[in-house]
Every structure is written in C-alpha cells, then in structure tokens.
Amino acid sequence: MRVVITGAGSVGRSIARELLHNGHQVLLIDKDADDVQASRVPDAAWLLADACEIAVLEEAKVHECDVVVAATGDDKVNLVVSLLSKTEFGVPRTVARVNNPKNEWMFDESWGVDVAVSTPRLMTALVEEAVSVGDLVRIFQFQQAKASMVELTMPGESPYIGKRIAEIQWPDDTVLVGIIRDDRPIAPSRDDAVEAHDELLFITTPDNEDVLEQMLSPGTRPPRDEDYR
C-alpha cells in the first residue's frame, strides 16, 4: 500500500514508522521539515513543500496512492489536503487529524474526509471504555460510511448473558465484530456464548447506538419490534 502523509511532526513521523514497519510505502510532505526530521524516518520518501498546493500533490503522485493522511497540527491544512486529495485526485481513502475538538463537525465527507481522528475524543473514549460497564462507548466514526465502532462491557445482570451469538437478534445495520475476554481478542462465531464482563465491539450506525445499549444493558426498556425495522 502506498500512503502519503502530510505533516512530518511527531504524529506524522510516528504514523510513518508504523506503516513502514508493516511493509508499506510512505511519502512524507512537510514544507518546514529539515534534514534532522528526515533522518528520523530515513526509510520514507520526503517532499519538502506545501501540501495545500495542487502542483505539490501532483508531484507527490497522490493520484497513485491508496491513502492520504492529513496529520498536520493545523486543522485548516488538514481539511484542504483532504478535500483536494478526494476531489482533485480521487484518493480512495483519506484520514484526517482533528486538533481542535470544536472543529470536529467539519471533518466529514463534504470536506473529503473519510475518517476523522480526534485525539481528545479518542482518549476520552479509551478512559470511558476502561471504567464503564453497561454503557455504550463510541470508539470512532467512519464519516463516509455513516457508521461507527462502539464498545460495550456486558454487565452481569444483562438478560443476554449465557446466550449464543446465533440466538441474539441485533438491531439493523449492526455487526458484532469482536469480543475481548480475559484480555484476549476473540473472533465471534455463532456458537460463542456471551459472558459477563465481555467487551463487545460493534460496527453500527449512530441511529442504532441507543437501541443497542438499551437492548444489552439492564434497567432500560426492552427492545420493541419496531426497533429492528
């Protein structure tokens, strides 16, 4: 996979190192990068230029890459890079860093953003995930697909404890993608039974998050037939 990363600060360099370690091709673009920064990620290709200019993105052959990661510390730059990558060069996937949570509402498909990553929101989700039992926690949202990854730790009083996956009817557009049990990830099968304190990971839509939480957690109304229509 070929990945272009705009912004060679600590975040961009960290992403580049991980991708390179996993065998991907990486090009870093930064107008302020110097030889010291380049030497920190010697296996990446570098382009010292302004990623907000179309000519620079053309030179970087963005149209040939699989993913563009807008990882600068400036939200305006990340939005412009995402929009140009998507509309001018048809990049299949864009991932944009959100620096100011107040700007998060702009990071959607109208600005060419497929996945928005907000560090404050992600840290909040991880804190909530660590201490919440029975509460649905949104890990992140896929902007283009209008879907989100959510987590719920099963309380011992849930009516679904002991039930097999095949016996549970999830809300529409909801998929159980993983179970974390005793600190080990499990790929759920139809015959797996839900246990107390299992961490269930779902891909679902924002409209179904409340339904899913009410369904699995005690003390809420039981799901009605219309919830699944």
Rank of each mutant, 00 (worst) to 15 (best):
D50T: 06
C52H: 01
C52G: 02
I54Q: 12
V56P: 07
E59A: 13
V62F: 09
H63S: 15
E64W: 10
V67H: 07
V68C: 11
V68Q: 03
G73T: 00
D74I: 02
D74V: 02
N78V: 00
V80E: 01
V80H: 06
V81L: 03
V81K: 02
T87F: 02
G90K: 04
P92R: 11
R93W: 00
T94I: 07
V95N: 09
A96T: 04
A96D: 04
R97G: 11
V98K: 02
P101I: 11
N103H: 14
E104Q: 08
E104S: 09
F107N: 05
D108E: 11
S110I: 14
W111S: 15
G112E: 13
G112Y: 15
V113W: 12
D114Y: 10
V115T: 14
A116D: 05
A116H: 07
V117G: 01
S118T: 06
S118H: 08
S118N: 07
L122H: 02
L122A: 12
L122E: 00
L122S: 04
M123L: 10
M123A: 08
A125N: 08
V127G: 12
A130R: 12
A130W: 02
V131F: 15
S132M: 10
I139G: 03
Q143H: 10
Q144G: 04
Q144F: 04
A145E: 12
A145D: 09
K146V: 01
K146W: 07
S148V: 09
S148T: 08
M149P: 01
M149S: 02
V150T: 14
T153E: 13
M154K: 06
M154W: 08
P155I: 09
P155D: 05
E157F: 13
S158Q: 05
Y160P: 06
Y160K: 09
G162A: 08
I165D: 00
I165F: 07
E167G: 05
W170C: 01
P171G: 00
D173P: 01
D173Q: 10
D173S: 07
T174W: 13
V175C: 11
I179F: 05
I179D: 12
D182E: 15
